[in-house]
Design a protein around this nucleic acid. Structure first.
Length: 220
DNA sequence: CGCTTTTGACCTGCGC
DNA sequence: GCGCAGGTCAAAAGCG
């Protein structure tokens, strides 16, 4: 599965997971995002704001995910921003469903289920949920967490099946769905649901030696 | 041997 | 109640 990764679209600094001052996860009350880590084979990543005045503007991850202006909330996903890691990624806008299929399925799914739901009936407890599109040859983008696939399902109006994954951490109940668009087969839509209650393993692996070294140096 | 993936069956919610 | 579609389960197979 860990094949060769295609070269990134453009070269830009990686998400701020690489900054020691940042926590491994950036969370808001109903939204959490762990910017995907980059595979070692990828030296850089792309962060693009599709609809911003400056399309190549670097994303302010902190404000984006901290609930401040321009931030993201789980089910709202009212953004047209694009984020890319090792490939071009588009955060999806639930309210703009001119892009159906995978994300459309999810978002429409939500919208439709909202429509279909009889008045007075409440939907399942809302969990933090967000989706984004990734232009990548790989279905699975390496976000630093370990996932176990627990299902795959053919989806209506889509040539590609939707895959269901669960975080393998025993106390963590985060799920994600992955689906490739049949309109544009280079785009993979990933939908995360839930909040990780544990640190990102890969990030910890990376940071632990650094922290040890810092502790060692600070002991003098 | 332990973990992951595959895949058909089953469950659930909704519209008709 | 029935059918449809999405989501989940769980046994079997695959893999390192």
């Amino acid at each position: 599965m860990e094949g060769q990764h295609p070269p990134p679209t453009t070269l830009l600094p990686p998400p701020p997971t690489s900054l020691p001052s940042l926590p491994p996860q950036i969370s808001s009350p109903n939204f959490l995002f762990s910017p995907p880590s980059l595979p070692s084979s990828t030296s850089s990543s792309t962060l693009l704001m599709n609809n911003s005045p400056n399309p190549n503007q670097e994303i302010d991850w902190i404000s984006l995910f901290s609930g401040q202006t321009g931030g993201i909330t789980a089910d709202e996903m009212t953004m047209n921003n694009s984020i890319s890691c090792r490939s071009k990624t588009v955060l999806q806008n639930n309210s703009n469903n001119n892009n159906s299929e995978a994300d459309g399925d999810h978002d429409q799914e939500d919208n439709q289920s909202n429509k279909r739901r009889a008045p007075g009936k409440t939907r399942k407890a809302a969990r933090p949920r967000f989706a984004f599109q990734t232009r990548s040859a790989d279905d699975i983008l390496d976000d630093g967490y370990r996932w176990r696939k627990y299902g795959q399902k053919a989806v209506k109006n889509s040539a590609y099946p939707r895959s269901y994954y669960r975080c393998t951490h025993h106390t963590c109940n985060v799920k994600k769905q992955v689906q490739r668009l049949s309109k544009d087969t280079s785009i993979v839509v990933t939908t995360y649901e839930g909040i990780h209650n544990h640190p990102c393993e890969k990030l910890m692996e990376t940071l632990t030696p650094l922290l040890r070294q810092m502790q060692f140096l600070s002991s003098f």
